[in-house]
Design a protein around this nucleic acid. Structure first.
Length: 561
RNA sequence: GCGCCUGUAGCUCAGCUGGAUAGAGCACCGGCCUUCUAAGCCGGCGGUCGCAGGUUCGAGUCCUGCCAGGCGCGCCA
């Protein structure tokens, strides 16, 4: 909708270049914006205001010149100068009718674009260590990351979803020791309980399964428990597989799937960590001090250098991190987006520094990051502390079971990732209109219901007749709906470009509001066949966009509620 | 002390690349179901956009400095 008009304007301005203003004065980026107020038409441009100084003319005078140079177009019904020098465009009703037909023809594909041109993008998200069930923070990561994947796919990217986890190292040792202790009936706090052990009850479940010689499947392989409480290595393998499997069940319940599970241990077994160390040394960005090997991250903006190989010969976390990103780069991803909790924000600089130090031609801003801030969980008016170690955290599974998948996903993705989120379990549990996801789903269900009623009343919807009579849609509410439906492709484009899924959640709420308002103000199933078919055509379009939008959020679009 | 994020209505939050009169939901007050699902609609109440400067024709949005909150600042991951 916006694009043809923008092209027209751009061409007009290009023609005026040199005459009215220098070419360099032309602003880059979008020229047009949607107006907030219908009195200002459909689209507005501030280009006359922007160019005024460079052109040495009054904005309104410049606006007149631009309008005069504008070729005639069927799209536009009115152009006027407003305020200090805005040019406001009103679109012809026929332009909206054409858009509606485009929408219906495109169906589930409406709003999609090819901005990514089939390029390969990866989103790495969740990446929880297999030391316990997923908590609410992981849930936010899962919801946001999954929506990012959907947005990127819808805008022409070939997306790979990857989950990275640490299957060795200190945390996993703690896990194994904790399970071992539980195998020996030692409880947290008792003598023999490991320092920094995992205290959650799920550790006992793992221990019980281990002693019962269960077999668990995870990430393409299966592990059978040895039942020997002294075999720490067997316990470790079993516990990791057991908890990875449990996380998989959580993710499946949440409707999130991954293409690749990447094991940190493989970075060692494949020699990638060693190769990375060697390369970093070769490029001269390292030095030895106090028996440790340091990377000069200060060369790349860090406030102090970082140890990469400890004096005991083992590596700090960030070296495998760098090696891991080298793997991602070598796998050919143009875009690499890491979705993670903001408590890990300090890794951004270091990973990028490590990649730059390798001098492999990796762009400075690669990878991209989307960080989500903490989720505070409230229950009974009190905060529930998230603590994996203490074992008293709210799991993602708790939320899904109590609130439902749809509401959980919507809540976790409807806010800017940048802002802290308060997840009030009591509020989200209450199945009332306080839950905005119901509001949107209800709009969809209502439309479905209208068509059920239509059949009961012995009518059928004549699509052809509806499309031929779109001019009958003259009501204010109908026009508002037409306008907002046509905004969907722009919203999708913006949400994907900015990596901000919450924009889609927000938009759908507005669209649902437009529909509900329309629904209450007018009857769709009327005697007049032309009007009836036109209205049914309009609400079918609304149903389609609600479906498309909800699909981008991974939220269902129910036929009835 | 340093870095990242946040500060908008009583509460929870939107506000897209700076634009024209700052928007929703909840709460509160008042209306609307013999008519396609009232999980809905309409109206009202409510704001010095943390504070102070600056840039700009124009700032909630950009810059600087403060103030407040969150998260990080390890030879943990």
């Amino acid at each position: 909708m916006k694009q043809p008009l923008e092209s027209l304007l751009h061409a007009t301005l290009t023609n005026l270049t040199g005459d009215l203003f220098p070419k360099a004065a032309l602003p880059e980026g979008p020229l047009l914006e949607r107006t907030r107020d219908l009195a200002h038409g459909d689209f507005a441009t501030n280009v006359a205001l922007v160019l005024a100084k460079r052109a040495g003319r009054q904005p309104r005078e410049l606006a007149r010149a631009i309008i005069a140079a504008l070729p005639k177009s069927e799209l536009i019904s009115k152009v006027e100068i407003a305020g200090p020098g805005f040019i406001n465009f009103s679109l012809a009703a026929s332009a909206y009718h054409a858009e509606l037909k485009t929408l219906l023809a495109a169906g589930a594909a409406y709003g999609r674009n090819q901005a990514g041109a089939g390029g390969h993008a990866m989103v790495e998200f969740v990446s929880a260590n297999p030391t316990g069930p997923l908590h609410v923070g992981h849930g936010r990561g899962a919801a946001v990351g999954d929506c990012l994947c959907r947005l990127l796919t819808a805008t022409g990217w070939a997306v790979t979803r990857e989950f990275y986890y640490n299957d060795a190292g200190q945390q996993i040792d703690n896990l194994a020791l904790s399970v071992q202790a539980r195998c020996k009936r030692i409880e947290p706090g008792q003598p023999g309980w490991p320092k920094d052990g995992y205290r959650g009850e799920y550790i006992q479940d793992v221990a019980n399964a281990y002693l019962a010689r269960q077999t668990v499947h995870a990430d393409g392989s299966s592990v059978t428990a040895g039942a020997d409480a002294d075999d720490l290595d067997a316990i470790r393998r079993f516990a990791v597989a057991y908890l990875r499997h449990e996380q998989d069940l959580d993710l499946r319940a949440f409707g999130v799937e991954f293409d690749v599970y990447y094991l940190e241990s493989s970075l060692y077994t494949e020699g990638r960590v060693q190769q990375t160390v060697r390369a970093l040394i070769e490029h001269g960005h390292t030095y030895e001090k106090d028996g440790a090997l340091w990377l000069k991250t200060t060369d790349f903006g860090d406030d102090k250098d970082r140890v990469m190989r400890k004096s005991d010969g083992s590596y700090t976390y960030f070296l495998p991190d760098v090696a891991y990103h080298v793997s991602k780069w070598q796998r050919g991803y143009i875009r690499m987006i890491n979705e993670q909790g903001a408590d890990h924000h300090s890794t951004i600089l270091r990973v990028r520094a490590g990649l730059q130090a390798l001098e492999m031609g990796i762009p400075k801003g690669w990878p991209e990051y989307v960080l989500h801030q903490m989720v505070t969980v409230m229950r009974g008016g009190a905060e529930v502390k998230l603590s994996k170690r203490a074992g008293s955290y709210v799991t993602l599974r708790d939320l899904i079971d109590e609130v439902g998948r749809d509401a959980t996903r919507y809540f976790l993705v409807a806010r800017k990732a940048d802002s802290q989120l308060t997840f009030d379990i009591d509020l989200a549990r209450s199945q009332t209109n306080e839950n905005p996801v119901y509001y949107i789903q209800y709009a969809h269900a209502r439309i479905a219901s209208v068509f059920r009623q239509l059949a009961e009343k012995g009518y059928t919807w004549n699509v052809k007749n509806g499309k031929a009579n779109l001019a009958q849609l003259t009501q204010t509410h109908e026009q508002a709906l037409l306008v907002n439906l046509s905004r969907f492709p722009e919203m999708l484009e913006t949400a994907a470009r900015n990596l901000e899924p919450h924009l889609m959640a927000q938009y759908l709420r507005e669209l649902a509001n437009d529909f509900h308002t329309y629904y209450d103000a007018h009857t769709f199933i009327v005697e007049d066949a032309a009007l009836r078919d036109a209205r049914l055509t309009l609400i079918t379009a609304a149903r389609q966009v609600l479906q498309n939008g909800l699909a981008l959020l991974g939220v269902s679009a129910p036929e009835s509620m």
